[in-house]
């Protein structure tokens, strides 16, 4: 049951991402990506990471993509006819390169055996929090500093003269 759901969600994620990238209209592209992010969030939930799943929806779908949407709406970029959508000259090398990479990856994985691993006991949110603030305290501090820098930088770039 869960395996079937996983494969369906994986298909939705991949198709959504491909549509998002090939779509000429930025707003539609963002929406396809949000769909793909949703199914990704459910995949995270299936992989016993509910916290990451929730943050995926809150941060990615709810904040970052909304920010994209806001910029597109505010700057009026939702016109594919005057957008710089790539032609086959741009697509050909990109598809070629990705195809080679995907093919080599598939080769590497096929050469090994796909073994179903033993079910692991997942840490609870409490253990996650303990690990986050005890063992990775420095990383938390660094990231908060980086967020502060991003805040200052965004304010500096966005100020009106």
């Amino acid at each position: 049951m869960e395996q079937a759901i996983f494969y369906i969600l994986a298909a939705v994620t991949v198709i959504g991402t491909i549509l998002a990238i090939t779509e000429k209209h930025p707003v539609h592209a963002i929406l396809f990506l949000v769909t793909s992010l949703f199914s990704m969030a459910v995949i995270f939930y299936l992989l016993m990471a509910p916290l990451v799943a929730a943050f995926e929806v809150i941060l990615y779908a709810g904040a970052i993509m909304v920010l994209f949407l806001f910029v597109i709406m505010m700057l009026d970029l939702g016109h594919p006819e005057k957008g710089m959508s790539p032609g086959w000259k741009e697509w050909l090398p990109a598809v070629l390169l990705s195809g080679i990479s995907i093919g080599s990856l598939a080769l590497v994985i096929v050469s090994r055996h796909a073994v179903s691993s033993a079910p692991a006991v997942m840490p609870t949110i409490r253990e996650l929090a303990v690990s986050l603030f005890r063992e990775h305290g420095l990383a938390v501090e660094l990231i908060s500093l980086q967020l502060l820098f991003a805040l200052v930088g965004a304010l500096y770039l966005g100020r009106q003269k």
Binding site: P50, A53, A54, F55, V57, I58, G62, I125
Partner: peptide, 13 residues
């Protein structure tokens, strides 16, 4: 068990 985050996620949607 992440009910509160679920609420925040949906309200951001």
């Amino acid at each position: 068990n992440v009910g509160l985050l679920f609420f925040l996620a949906l309200s951001s949607i």
